[in-house]
Design a binder for these strands. Structure first.
Lengths: 196, 196
DNA sequence: TTATCGCTTGAACGATCGTTCAAGTAAACC
DNA sequence: GGTTTACTTGAACGATCGTTCAAGCGATAA
């Protein structure tokens, strides 16, 4: 075993994050990982197999960070900070503004059934993470008692998805920061009646 | 000239919308348009050239629909209706829930410089369309005078982008409808101070 | 009639795609 | 020591990619 597993996944993550599943060719992967095709296939069975591990690792990582937000002294403040760091990173890490999962959703029909399942399950996991944050905010009195947790969690995740696409197109951070501010305002604001 | 131009663009739009630029192979295009490669290249120079025309036509169409919203008797009501129809179509037209432009943004690095330019310019055009709607709402007294039009327009477009990704993952329309309701609430709600 | 033009056809091109495979290496196990 | 196992190498495979091109068609212009 010449190559370190975590290091491989990390490098592969960067590549898939930058280029997407389809656009990242096997020869790009071989170069990025400094591995020959046989090694890659012996370990990961296929390009999709490698991608699946990348997705799972990425989701696990994201989940951990959401958990930290939920367990913070001020979940609402931590949430703001989480949004800010995720959306306004330096320009050379611009690709990171896009959520790898969301990016993958755009390729859902291409990436194969196994990876597709991993992506969708990861989205569910993260939704639960957002819900924990909402509930933590309510518990700490940072959000009103009557905030509909399930709806708010979906909404929050959705805002995050939209904002990542938004931030990707922005040249400066001011517009993005204003959007985050608006999210925080709306989070504390009214919610529609559930009587549909 | 055997094939009708508008018909070609329409069929190509459907294909690109369903599959994306990259995943729509020339042989898929040939089949969808019932044209041979030579014909396609004689008319459109390249796959990218065809795609560029598709994008421009799509943007033009979208712009027209936004204009109708802005010019409606109740722009706010028309806006709601616009969101609803765009996001909760029948299942066999599920691909239409995704905005072709947003989908293309995910492929921005792949589609080539000419098409890239067309996509980004179209996004700007649509942003202006959203702004017209906001201003029409203010003028008709459906939104408060002090609503920051520029910010609100960006926000609205952003909500639309996020919701399209959201709607794509939903099995039933209830969750999507609730999200639209929340958008309408927040649109009338508070806006962050511009003092950043 | 002849020339020109835009459009059409379909075979074929070179490049690239994901993947396979025979062969080799090094550590682990019996 | 011998066998197994996990991993490595790099050439090569068949398939598919976007694109080209010689040839032909039909309408228009001279």
């Amino acid at each position: 075993m010449k190559y370190d597993h975590d290091e491989i996944i990390e490098k592969a993550t960067t590549l898939f994050w930058q280029r997407g599943f389809q656009a990242a060719g096997m020869r790009d992967i071989q170069q990025a990982l400094d591995m020959r095709p046989g090694s890659i296939y012996a370990r990961f069975q296929s390009k999709e197999g490698l991608f699946k591990l990348v997705i799972e690792q990425y989701a696990q990582n994201s989940e951990k960070r959401l958990k930290q937000v939920a367990e913070a002294e001020s979940p609402l403040g931590a949430l703001y900070h989480f949004f800010e760091t995720a959306l306004t990173g330096p320009d050379e890490q611009r690709y990171m503004r896009q959520c790898l999962l969301v990016k993958s959703i755009a390729e859902l029909d291409i990436i194969g059934d196994i990876a597709k399942k991993a992506v969708l399950e990861s989205m569910q996991t993260l939704k639960a993470g957002f819900r924990d944050i909402i509930e933590a905010c309510i518990e700490k009195g940072e959000l009103p008692e009557q905030t509909p947790a399930k709806l708010a969690a979906e909404w929050l995740q959705n805002q995050f998805v939209g904002l990542r696409a938004f931030a990707l197109m922005q040249d400066e951070n001011l517009a993005t920061t204003q959007m985050i501010d608006k999210v925080m305002v709306d989070l504390k604001g009214q919610w529609p009646q559930q009587t549909h």
